[in-house]
Amino acid sequence: MRNYMKYLCGLCLLCVLCGVSVSCQDGDWEPVTNYTLWNDTIQERNVVTIGSLKQKYKTAISNSSYAKIEDDVQIKALVTVNDEGGNISQQIVVKDESGYIIIGVTENSMYSYVKPGQLILMNLKGLYIGGYGKNAQIGYPGKSSTSGAERIGRMTRYDWYDHVNFLGTPDKTLVPAAIEFKPSLDKDTYSDYLVYVEGTFADADGEAILAPVNMADAGNSVNRTFKIASGGTVDIRTSTYADFYKMVMPTGRVRVYGVAIRYQDSSWQIQMRTGDDLVILE
């Protein structure tokens, strides 16, 4: 009996030790609530308008080239469009009282934290500005993987986080309402505006979709001719990677919302943000 008692005590002790000392190492994790993606140390010190910025670098923009922003300047702007929907990808549109500009960032699904109506303060020194099809963009120089052309591209998301501060919480009511699109709109002024246009899709037949993959161009997008009710036409440009690329073009009259993007001097394109930007009128 004595022999068994000695090992029994040892065994029980070991069991108890195991039982009390063992605990899950991957238990419930407390949510993290105080992390900010952006650089909240950035303070206002030398804010310039988007208009003045575009004026200063108009040569680079109009030549579809790029230039480095050497001055220690900032913009304070409101986000009007993000990348929700997948049609406007890896870029956002911001505006201040003087104009609009695109910011290109190599990051997917920025819409999770960049909301329309968000006010941002951005340090520009060290970044680049240029023109993509003469459309002004802040980003980083890139080379086309197909043509080899040098142009303004997108900054890394780490540069973006490092150069931007978010001021307050987003207020959607601050985003200007969409204006009516006309082909005669001045491209220098109205590029990147939120617009709407009413009319019909020229190729709508009840089955044709917005962006058939076999019609995609080198940018993986399809331009659909839109007949404007008030006259003229415009291209509705949809990426084959947009969530709604398979939407069937309605045959009747519709209103299309989107961002007006200039392409060089020759044309306009309207890029819908989400499938909700297509409103059937009849």
Binding site: P31, V32, T33, Y35, L37, S112, Y113, K115
Partner: peptide, 14 residues
């Protein structure tokens, strides 16, 4: 992980 939480919070709001 902190960044991922922050992005999820942003989506909660919408």
């Amino acid at each position: 992980f902190d960044e991922l939480y922050a992005k999820n919070y942003g989506l909660n709001a919408d």
